[in-house]
């Protein structure tokens, strides 16, 4: 326990000024259907040319709709997927190609919080076993009893009662289960946590409890988060920077308030306008203004901007050439030809 926490602090001191996570030109390709039997499978580009830096102790909110590649990006950083292009640099070390024992050790530093606390916890394991499992797997403790103290400490961190240790997960509410999931992720003292929609399955009143807990833990333990979400409502409160994904491309990235106050990319504006606001004054009047943004078949082939068919500003330039993901005024990163002419 002690030498592990030393390792923890020592690494912190060595490279405090460099980003803990750098992603450079990351691409992930999946094999799709074969066009003919035994023929080569069609390639599906799930992520294309993703580049960003994440500083220590900060949170990156990763927002996109289903199929945008947000979970794929999370899993690529965790190295649960083969990376086809580009590099992932964690703590100054290129981890794009690590395998075997090195990859296993890497999972101590990068952990995952799952979306659905109802299906991600084994119903036949007690809370003690669930939280101690990562410790046992990585050989940090040799028996459950030995882990009991450490698990108790983790339970305290996530505000769970100690008498919960010997109970099964079915007796807990959604919020409590997600706390168990968080305690499990914290067990190995990771430095980077990928949280894949950790509150999407929870009730509104409980959502806030979990988000606030994650913020407290970040302060207390100096954690870095990648917080994946499918809309822009909760991420504002936890993120320092927010990146928007659309069909495997990053279309905009900016500091939190800049993104909400002056969104640059048309897709970001659509996402913002789609969030239902708890204010009767902003009542829907039944005009389908968003209809234009989702044509049934997106044309993704050929040159040009990927968003061109959904965009009302789309012009000749957008058809001919894809806009680069470049830095614009106010620290905004965006992939759009219209950003500076706005």
């Amino acid at each position: 326990m002690t030498d592990q926490s030393n390792r923890f602090e020592a690494d912190h001191a060595v490279a405090a000024d460099m980003p803990i996570l750098s992603v450079r030109g990351l691409g992930v390709t999946f094999d799709g259907e074969r066009e003919r039997p035994f023929g080569p499978p069609k390639k599906i580009q799930a992520l294309d040319n993703i580049t960003f830096d994440l500083e220590r102790g900060k949170t990156l909110g990763l927002v996109g709709e289903s199929g945008s590649g947000k979970s794929t990006l999370g899993r690529a950083i965790l190295r649960r997927l083969p990376i086809s292009e580009g590099r992932v640099i964690f703590d100054g070390r290129d981890i794009s190609n690590v395998k075997g024992e090195a990859l296993r050790r890497l999972t101590r530093d990068i952990q995952l919080i799952f979306q659905d606390p109802y299906t991600s916890l084994n119903p036949r394991m007690k809370v003690l076993e669930l939280i101690a499992e990562p410790l046992l797997v990585h050989g940090l403790v040799s028996s459950l009893e030995e882990a009991r103290d450490q698990v108790g400490e983790l339970m305290r961190l996530v505000n769970l009662p100690l008498d919960a240790l010997d109970r099964f997960p079915h007796g807990f509410s959604g919020g409590q289960r997600q706390r168990i999931g968080i305690a499990r992720a914290l067990a190995l003292k990771p430095r980077l946590i990928i949280a894949d929609e950790p509150v999407s399955a929870l009730d509104v009143s409980v959502r806030a409890q979990v988000v606030n807990l994650m913020q407290d833990l970040q302060q207390e333990l100096g954690l870095t988060y990648v917080f994946i979400a499918h809309d822009l409502s909760v991420v504002r409160h936890i993120s320092h920077d927010i990146a928007i994904l659309h069909r495997g491309h990053m279309v905009e990235m900016a500091e939190r308030d800049a993104l909400y106050d002056t969104p640059e990319h048309p897709y970001t504006k659509v996402l913002l306008s789609a969030v239902p606001e708890p204010d009767p004054a902003l009542r829907r009047n039944g005009d389908c203004a968003l209809e234009a943004h989702r044509p049934p078949e997106l044309n993704l082939s050929g040159p040009g901007c990927r968003y061109r068919d959904c965009c009302d500003k789309s012009g000749g330039h957008c058809q001919r050439e894809a806009p680069p993901f470049a830095k614009h005024r106010g620290g905004h990163w965006a992939a759009c030809w219209h950003v500076s002419t706005d």
């Binding site: 996402l271 306008s273 789609a274 829907r284 203004a289």
Partner: peptide, 9 residues
């Protein structure tokens, strides 16, 4: 969310 907005509309 964008589909949700459409269904609500």
């Amino acid at each position: 969310v964008t589909i949700q907005a459409q269904v609500l509309d």
